[in-house]
Simulated scan of single mutants.
Amino acid sequence: MPTVYVTRKVRFNAAHRLHNPARSDAWNRETFGKCNNPNWHGHNYTLEVTVAGEPDPETGYVIDLGVLKRILEEKVVAKCDHANLNLDVDFMQGVLPSTENFAVAIWHQLVDALPSGRLVSVRLYETEHNMAEYRGE
């Protein structure tokens, strides 16, 4: 059977602050610029999750996209939408919420939650120009 890749896209809004408490305020301002604003800043995130596998002979699905939609809603969107990543999101506690780290954290939320297929990639767009992709490596 062929391997097929299916992708689901979701959107959510969240605030965060890039700040490394192990470094000085001056270092944080210089390193993170506007992203170090002590009053936070927000993004309109777009998340693309790709799952691969052989289509089921009875359904033709690698994964039922309705099921994947529910998993993304439960594991990511419900926790992150209109939330502060630094303060409100359980799986981001103690993690510097860069797009790179956020993508890895989302992967860990999803990797064991899929009923079929295998998680191939998490692509997280912070803006239309900036994104991070994690493939479980």
Score class of each variant (00 low, 15 high):
residue 35 C to V: 04
residue 35 C to G: 06
residue 35 C to E: 12
residue 35 C to Q: 11
residue 35 C to P: 01
residue 36 N to I: 02
residue 37 N to R: 05
residue 37 N to W: 05
residue 37 N to G: 10
residue 37 N to F: 08
residue 38 P to G: 04
residue 38 P to C: 05
residue 39 N to I: 01
residue 39 N to H: 14
residue 39 N to R: 13
residue 40 W to Q: 14
residue 41 H to P: 09
residue 41 H to W: 14
residue 42 G to K: 08
residue 42 G to V: 12
residue 42 G to A: 15
residue 44 N to Q: 13
residue 44 N to M: 05
residue 44 N to K: 11
residue 44 N to E: 06
residue 45 Y to V: 14
residue 45 Y to R: 08
residue 45 Y to A: 04
residue 45 Y to T: 05
residue 46 T to D: 12
residue 46 T to Q: 14
residue 46 T to V: 15
residue 46 T to Y: 09
residue 47 L to Q: 08
residue 47 L to S: 11
residue 47 L to N: 07
residue 48 E to T: 10
residue 48 E to I: 03
residue 48 E to H: 07
residue 48 E to G: 04
residue 48 E to M: 09
residue 49 V to S: 13
residue 49 V to Q: 02
residue 49 V to D: 10
residue 50 T to S: 11
residue 50 T to M: 03
residue 52 A to Y: 07
residue 52 A to V: 11
residue 52 A to L: 06
residue 52 A to F: 02
residue 52 A to Q: 15
residue 52 A to N: 07
residue 53 G to H: 03
residue 53 G to E: 07
residue 53 G to S: 09
residue 54 E to R: 04
residue 55 P to S: 06
residue 55 P to G: 07
residue 55 P to R: 07
residue 55 P to F: 06
residue 56 D to G: 00
residue 56 D to R: 00
residue 56 D to V: 01
residue 56 D to C: 04
residue 56 D to F: 03
residue 56 D to P: 03
residue 57 P to M: 10
residue 57 P to V: 12
residue 58 E to C: 03
residue 58 E to W: 03
residue 59 T to H: 02
residue 59 T to G: 12
residue 60 G to A: 01
residue 61 Y to T: 02
residue 61 Y to H: 10
residue 61 Y to A: 07
residue 62 V to P: 02
residue 62 V to F: 02
residue 62 V to W: 05
residue 63 I to D: 00
residue 63 I to N: 05
residue 63 I to H: 04
residue 64 D to H: 00
residue 64 D to S: 00
residue 65 L to I: 15
residue 65 L to T: 01
residue 65 L to E: 01
residue 65 L to A: 03
residue 65 L to R: 02
residue 65 L to K: 09
residue 66 G to D: 09
residue 67 V to E: 14
residue 67 V to I: 15
residue 67 V to Q: 09
residue 67 V to N: 01
residue 68 L to A: 00
residue 69 K to M: 12
residue 69 K to S: 13
residue 69 K to F: 08
residue 69 K to H: 13
residue 69 K to Y: 11
residue 70 R to F: 12
residue 70 R to N: 15
residue 70 R to V: 14
residue 71 I to H: 09
residue 71 I to C: 08
residue 72 L to I: 06
residue 72 L to V: 00
residue 73 E to N: 06
residue 74 E to S: 12
residue 74 E to P: 03
residue 75 K to M: 08
residue 75 K to F: 10
residue 75 K to H: 12
residue 75 K to G: 09
residue 75 K to S: 13
residue 76 V to K: 06
residue 76 V to A: 02
residue 76 V to M: 03
residue 76 V to R: 01
residue 77 V to L: 04
residue 77 V to E: 10
residue 77 V to D: 09
